[in-house]
Design a protein around this nucleic acid. Structure first.
Lengths: 170, 170
DNA sequence: ATTGACAGTTCTATTTTAGAACTATATGCT
DNA sequence: AGCATATAGTTCTAAAATAGAACTGTCAAT
């Protein structure tokens, strides 16, 4: 499976992974949320090679996650800022950070704390049900096919060797 | 930066990415949450090469995210099930799926729906503040150094070219 | 004795990434 | 004028990771 194919899978997770599912992209996005905006800023913060950084920024712009806007003429310079689509990645970032805070910290404790401006306190992110507001866990959730699901039990096109890997996806 | 180095960064996000931040690992974990447990099951569901699948499963077991338990003797066979540490990845998975559901669906709609057993409804995951219960967005959060932060303004070891990339990390 | 299921391992070819150097435009210094 | 510095890339070769296919080993069923 190539990266391009991922984005065409009938699975929101596979499609999202096709866009942000590599380590440099995720780290670049971390920097974006920490207010880094410029090429040199990303490069020196991350130690990424300039080649890959340029490539990843282009991809994020193509995907509509970053917008490239000029901040000076002559020489032309641009900076990269998160679009709304990019800002919407925040829960993913926070979920990743929170898992790391829970399972990957050393004896020194958390590298970063997060303060909620509204209530003023340092917080953890909690994922809740949009309908009843209760916290979610894997075991309380039942997953079932939606309108965009690929195959049904009566799928007229039986899986071939080529498509077999996809029929399960969702 | 090598994969191994990522896990030593003073950043919960970098460390987590070092563990689950590649596309196959994320897809394998999706299958785990969809109740796949066996080698052949992963392989045929994903179309991943057997070589990489074996390698990734080993890594997930080493990290304590999956446990490899025998389900029959002669010939010895094992299955892979999520540990609590693995189950705790659920919010990350749901956040990724939800972003895809919001920004990557085609005209046909969502491939999968999620029903909350407690309230019986199809839901979206919402990330809220553990302290006040309000939904979170990037702009309402102030990030500041915690006890495990690497460098302070008075850091006695000034950044060198070699460590420069790390000093910003958090 | 042969076939099939399962869980891997081994091999070569291709693709990606790392690492370093180079290009281009413009400012400011001497 | 000549040179260093800042910014944002591009281009090159070497090293690492992944794809794709074939192979190994154990046991049950026919």
């Amino acid at each position: 499976m190539k990266w391009k194919e991922l984005e065409e899978e009938p699975c929101s997770m596979a499609r999202t992974i096709g866009v942000i599912g590599d380590r440099w992209t995720l780290l670049i996005l971390r920097e974006c949320f920490l207010r880094t905006r410029r090429f040199e800023g990303f490069q020196s913060a991350l130690g990424i090679t300039r080649h890959l950084l340029a490539e990843r920024l282009k991809k994020l712009v193509r995907q509509g996650i970053l917008r490239r806007i000029p901040y000076q003429e002559s020489p032309k310079r641009h900076e990269y800022i998160l679009t709304q689509k990019g800002l919407d990645l925040y829960p993913i970032m926070m979920a990743i950070v929170h898992w790391g805070d829970t399972h990957m910290v050393d004896e020194r404790g958390r590298p970063l704390l997060h303060q909620h401006r509204k209530c003023g306190k340092d917080f953890d992110p909690v994922m809740v049900c949009s309908e009843c507001g209760e916290p979610l866990s894997a075991k309380e959730v039942h997953t079932h096919p939606g309108p965009g699901a690929r195959s049904t039990p009566a799928d007229p096109a039986p899986a071939t060797a080529k498509t077999k890997a996809r029929s399960r996806a969702a």
